[in-house]
């Protein structure tokens, strides 16, 4: 084949162009750390990366929701623990005051303490968390119990996703803990105890031993449920956090470049470019007449 001037120049320019493109690409990869930046770099990997990014973001968001729900459940569980203590103290008072050696004055004083315990229980039933009143069901914007101890919340549930299509109820029923919906009405039982103490009615005081114990158990049961839900929420959040990490890792595997091969390629590309430049200069400074 005859070799002409144009062939030499075209070949040199084309080679130089290819080398420059290789250096450019290697520089982009090495400096950004990304093997796939645009969809056209690797359409399949790009699409997988997009899907992983979406699922990772969703998992992180679900995990956050569960963390916040866990935070409110923790508040509720703490309030219920205190409520259990309140009822335990009320039962202790009832047991102590049921003793025949107690006089009416002592019982009246105890009634004052029981009144205080009832107010304390009211405060606990109206505890607020990050998402409003924790025992109000879905009516979270107003205190679920009035100063007259009436329940004005509802039994609506609030759920959080622990996986696509799978939910976990993350709120508690204040009705079940603090009203007869759970079996006993602790406020009424404490009120009855205080009245019995104030009126020195030993039979009523004796009866309160059982009712306050039942109320304590009722609150304790709801607290156990809260603790269980709290653990499930925490566990699900942790699983989702790990899932997000795995998806991020998988996404990085699809889209990111390994540092060592990227820098090796950059070095090779730069060397090839330099060599090509030298040869191109020789060819362009040609011709054989000039040598």
């Amino acid at each position: 084949m005859r070799i002409t001037e144009n062939m030499r120049v075209s070949s040199a320019v084309a080679t130089q162009q290819r080398m420059a493109e290789r250096v450019q690409r290697a520089t982009e990869v090495a400096s950004s750390g990304a093997r796939v930046g645009k969809a056209s770099d690797d359409p399949s990997a790009w699409a997988t990366g997009q899907t992983h990014a979406g699922r990772s973001a969703a998992a992180k968001a679900r995990s956050k929701v569960l963390d916040r729900a866990a935070s409110d459940l923790e508040v509720a569980e703490g309030a219920l623990a205190s409520a259990v203590d309140v009822m335990a103290r009320a039962r202790a008072i009832a047991t102590q005051m049921a003793n025949g050696s107690m006089d009416a004055a002592t019982r009246k004083n105890a009634a004052i303490e029981v009144d205080a315990l009832r107010d304390q229980l009211l405060g606990l039933a109206n505890t607020q968390g990050g998402a409003g009143y924790v025992f109000g069901g879905t009516k979270t914007d107003v205190p679920p119990f009035t100063p007259g101890y009436a329940f004005v919340g509802n039994t609506g549930t609030r759920a959080a996703e622990i996986a696509p299509g799978t939910t976990l109820v993350t709120n508690l029923s204040g009705a079940r803990a603090f009203t007869t919906a759970g079996g006993r009405d602790p406020f009424a039982d404490l009120g009855a105890l205080a009245t019995a103490l104030r009126t020195n009615a030993v039979a009523g005081i004796t009866a309160a031993i059982d009712t306050t114990e039942a109320g304590r158990r009722q609150l304790s049961d709801v607290r156990s449920d809260a603790g269980l839900t709290l653990e499930r929420a925490r566990s699900a959040s942790e699983v989702l956090g790990n899932l997000a990490l795995q998806l991020d890792k998988a996404r990085a595997g699809e889209l990111e470049a390994d540092a060592a091969p990227a820098f090796t390629e950059l070095k090779n590309a730069s060397d090839a470019y330099d060599r090509s430049l030298t040869v191109t200069k020789q060819i362009l400074s040609l011709s054989s007449l000039a040598r």
Binding site: A58, A61, R62, K64, V65, R68, A69, G130, A131, G132, T140, D141, R158, A159, A160, E161
Partner: peptide, 8 residues
């Protein structure tokens, strides 16, 4: 998802 956690 945030709204799920804090609907109000």
């Amino acid at each position: 998802q945030q709204l799920v956690g804090f609907p109000g």
